[in-house]
Simulated scan of single mutants.
Amino acid sequence: MICRRPRTTSSAIVAAALTLSFGTAPMAEETPQRIVAVGGAVTEIVYALGEESRLVARDTTSNHPPAAVALPDVGYIRALSAEGVLSVNPDMILSETGAGPIETIELLREAAVPVVEVNGGFSREAIGEKVMTVAAVLGVPEKGSALAAQVDAEIAAAMAEIDTAHRPKVLFVLSTAGGRVMAGGENTSADAIITLAGGQNAAVGFEGFKPITDEAIVTSGAEVILMMDRGGDHDASLADLKAHPSLGQTPAVQKGALVRIDGMLLLGFSVRTGQAISDLAAALARVAS
């Protein structure tokens, strides 16, 4: 399937993005040349478009491609420092939805720095819209059309290879800090990627990333536990999961069916989503068989 071109024009996309920004700062007559990218999906798109020379900083979630890590880090997407952002003298902030805190965004507005917000979403269509929005803001709509089509074709190819004979129940565990399990419910990026990769979300009956009860975990019938590949307080080993009073009772943990994938790759819904689908589908086939 070739990516359907968005019905809106490039100028309309930019206008909508500016309207959805924290304020209505006018677009500069010249395309921005000193951009702070906030959000890993946005940063990956800028690099995939070949426009990375215009980036002067990035946020902490922007860890791919590896070259992005060399850019100055202005903080976590929801805990940005106005001083850090302004220190790189940007002419635009290009951000995923949800950047903050609001006080920082207001300070940036007062400093006359446009903050363009790129709509999120976790569907094939949403990815294409993200690509086209970023490309329009950067003034390279032709590159955007080509990249959106390429990414959608990669997603289609990945999905075509999935064995749909068995759709394992997958529980996405965001964190087990303090023994409390945070899971990915319905209408989340975790739910979406599990479905695209041929699985079923075992966390039902609630939306968002929220604590899940012990009873819900035990009765979920989870055949696979899916986690982000990371360390720190939010991480948990298979031994930790086996020792957990509810996770330890799931078929997934009892047979050691634990899958770890890089968080930005898995949940970013950007230019690497085709790879994420392939990697997750292969892992599910391996551990759930």
Results as ranks from 00 to 15, higher is better:
176 T>P: 09
235 D>R: 11
128 G>R: 01
163 D>H: 10
235 D>W: 06
147 L>Q: 06
134 V>T: 02
185 G>I: 15
140 V>F: 00
128 G>N: 03
202 A>L: 04
194 I>S: 06
172 F>H: 10
189 S>E: 15
191 D>H: 06
136 A>F: 07
228 M>Y: 05
198 G>W: 00
171 L>G: 13
151 V>W: 10
222 A>K: 08
195 T>I: 10
110 E>Q: 15
211 P>F: 13
214 D>H: 13
168 P>T: 10
189 S>V: 11
185 G>M: 15
159 M>V: 13
136 A>Q: 04
244 H>D: 07
134 V>A: 01
176 T>L: 10
235 D>V: 00
206 F>V: 05
160 A>S: 13
190 A>M: 12
138 L>E: 03
232 G>K: 10
219 T>Y: 14
125 E>W: 06
158 A>N: 11
236 A>R: 11
186 E>C: 14
104 T>A: 05
166 H>F: 08
184 G>I: 06
194 I>F: 05
200 Q>E: 11
186 E>D: 15
215 E>V: 12
159 M>L: 12
134 V>H: 04
181 V>D: 11
203 A>G: 12
136 A>H: 07
248 G>N: 11
196 L>M: 10
106 E>R: 14
186 E>Q: 15
150 Q>P: 14
240 D>Y: 10
204 V>A: 09
247 L>W: 08
192 A>Q: 09
211 P>M: 15
230 R>V: 02
231 G>C: 00
136 A>Y: 06
186 E>T: 15
214 D>S: 12
143 K>M: 00
107 L>E: 10
238 L>Q: 14
228 M>E: 06
239 A>K: 15
199 G>A: 02
111 A>R: 00
146 A>E: 00
122 F>E: 07
218 V>K: 09
165 A>S: 13
173 V>D: 00
169 K>Y: 09
126 A>F: 07
196 L>K: 04
136 A>P: 06
188 T>V: 09
163 D>M: 08
224 V>Y: 01
181 V>N: 02
191 D>W: 04
229 D>L: 03
102 I>T: 14
235 D>S: 12
244 H>E: 10
227 M>K: 11
128 G>W: 04
191 D>G: 08
234 H>N: 14
214 D>T: 15
172 F>I: 03
107 L>G: 01
160 A>P: 11
124 R>D: 12
196 L>E: 04
108 L>T: 01
231 G>F: 01
151 V>I: 13
159 M>G: 08
114 P>W: 02
215 E>M: 09
236 A>F: 01
248 G>H: 09
199 G>M: 02
111 A>F: 13
105 I>L: 15
139 G>V: 00
243 A>S: 12
103 E>H: 12
153 A>F: 12
201 N>F: 04
164 T>Y: 08
121 G>P: 03
238 L>M: 07
173 V>S: 02
137 V>P: 09
163 D>C: 07
211 P>C: 14
116 V>G: 01
246 S>M: 14
115 V>F: 08
122 F>A: 12
150 Q>I: 11
165 A>W: 09
203 A>S: 14
197 A>K: 02
106 E>T: 12
146 A>C: 02
221 G>F: 03
146 A>N: 01
108 L>H: 00
141 P>M: 00
